[in-house]
Design a binder for these strands. Structure first.
Lengths: 145, 145
DNA sequence: ATGGCTGCAAAGTATTTGCAACACG
DNA sequence: CGTGTTGCAAATACTTTGCAGCCAT
């Protein structure tokens, strides 16, 4: 149901890119974390190879490569670090809690209506998989003032 | 209809804060740009006083002060810099073009339905004035592949 | 063999903070 | 006068880039 690391690697190969240990490691981390919201630093930490940890720069370059290949998308969360996940994942919206920083996923069902409405109203085509909504999650509902 | 610089200053005074030239300048820039999406750097550039330009650090501190006073809100745009605008402005959603970077404002009408739906579905209370949607604006509609 | 890829380090951007001098109230 | 503020600079966080050596093909 989810893309495997091998599929990612295969796609890279098809595009004439070299299959290296770091790329393989990054692909595996991403494939393994299909439901997670991983930022570049986390990916770098998890994606260690035999020859030690992977440099952040390499991770960013690899992620960019994967994005160009259409395998990955990234989302900028309100507070800072960008998170990455497979493009093949069901598109979803990120709900980020201002208070505790937790990230909740929301299916696009509630968003589809808006998508069309935005398009009709403004001519703007929104990318609903690529943005985050700030707010307060259920646990942090109580006012903090 | 929009808050004036004096009102902002008056509110700061009421909170026991000192009214200084830099704060006055920042308030004026914000009041003048009520419909704009200003980032801290832009505010710093516009808010020059007799004694020269205002330091970025001061701008950030002043903005934070205004936010604490409930006069201002900030939004993190997908590509990087946070933008600030009056809390009293009609709440609106920001549509940011991935291609040209332009920012379009969207009234909350199309969003209200979603707001309720999100709340019912997930218990998450979204802050619709505080997030941006990525996508492609009308002018950049044509594929760039 | 050779050009794409990597790691290291430095640069860049956005934002925060320490500190001494200064000015509002 | 005394403390809140400011400006400068250094620090932090995230991401990008230059460069020389290495390895997949």
């Amino acid at each position: 149901m989810h893309i495997s690391a091998e599929t990612l690697i295969e796609t890279l190969r098809e595009r004439g890119l070299r299959i290296t240990a770091p790329r393989r490691a990054v692909c595996e981390v991403i494939a393994a974390g299909h439901d997670d919201h991983l930022d570049a630093t986390t990916i770098a930490e998890r994606a260690t190879t035999d020859s030690g940890p992977i440099d952040t720069a390499t991770v960013y370059r690899t992620l960019e490569t994967l994005i160009e290949a259409g395998l990955l998308t990234h989302t900028h969360l309100p507070h800072g670090a960008a998170v990455y996940h497979l493009a093949q994942s069901a598109p979803h919206t990120h709900l980020v809690c201002d208070t505790c920083g937790s990230v909740t996923s929301l299916g696009t069902d509630p968003m589809h209506a808006v998508e069309n409405q935005i398009l009709e109203t403004t001519g703007f085509t929104p990318d609903l998989a690529h943005f985050a909504i700030s707010g307060r999650c259920e646990s942090c509902q109580q006012p903090n003032t």
